[in-house]
Structures are given as C-alpha cells and as structure tokens.
Design a protein around this nucleic acid. Structure first.
Length: 116
DNA sequence: TTTCTAACA
DNA sequence: TGTTAGTA
C-alpha cells in the first residue's frame, strides 16, 4: 500500500472541524462519545482528536437517529453487525441487504424531514 | 480562544 | 439538547 493513501484512522481533527463537517453540535458529539457510540482519541488537555472514520461514524449515527433509532438500538445494530462480520467475512445475500439498507438510510437523509 | 466536564433548565 | 459555569 502506498503512503499516499488517506489515513482515515489517523485522529487529527479537532472538535471545531468535526462540528462543521457533521453539522452536529459539540454537545451532540460529546454525548455520542459518552454513550460509547464513538471513541475519539485524546490529545493534550484531554481534547478529543477525531479521524475521518470518526466523522463517517458520526454521520452514520446522525442518520440512524434521524431515522428514529434510539442510542441503545444503534448499539444493538453495531453488535449485530459485529456478529455477522465475525462468523461470515464473505458478503452473503443477507449482508448485502443490510449494506443496501444502510445506503438507503443515508440517501434518505436527503429526502427525509431535514431542513436543507 | 478553544475544548472539557458537570449540572441545571 | 441547549446552555452555563469554571477549568485546563
């Protein structure tokens, strides 16, 4: 792999940047962290440092929340996702349907009740 | 100035 | 969730 690839897991983004990238409030981002939905790295002074993956994750969380899911339900979705990933690494029909569902959920963000 | 935690409305 | 207080 080349060193030119984007290191999506490198935590270098401060709260201010993530706030704008996700269109979420600091409060919401910290709350999702508290709930264990995200685990940002910490820098000097315990300041959160987010990676590109964290940003994607936050957007995904926001999508689920907008779709009416509760925090605990999102945790269940994660657990289910991990089980599927652990037992069947190869994409089967079931996984593909979940992947499609996730994509539709994201697309729905542009058709749903959002103010933009 | 920015971010953090805790707590109250 | 917003907001405020007191810090680091």
């Amino acid at each position: 792999m080349g060193r030119r690839e984007l290191r999506r897991d490198l935590a270098v983004l401060p709260m201010s940047v993530v706030r704008e990238l996700t269109d979420l409030s600091d409060r919401q981002i910290r709350y999702y962290d508290q709930q264990g939905l995200i685990t940002p790295q910490r820098g000097a002074g315990k300041q959160r440092r987010f990676s590109l993956n964290d940003v994607d994750r936050l957007i995904e969380i926001a999508d689920y929340l907008d779709a009416g899911y509760s925090v605990s339900e999102i945790h269940e979705v994660d657990a289910k996702k991990q089980r599927k990933l652990a037992e069947k690494p190869e994409p089967n029909e079931e996984n593909l349907r979940h992947m499609l569902a996730d994509e539709l959920l994201k697309i729905g963000r542009f058709n749903g009740q959002r103010k933009f």
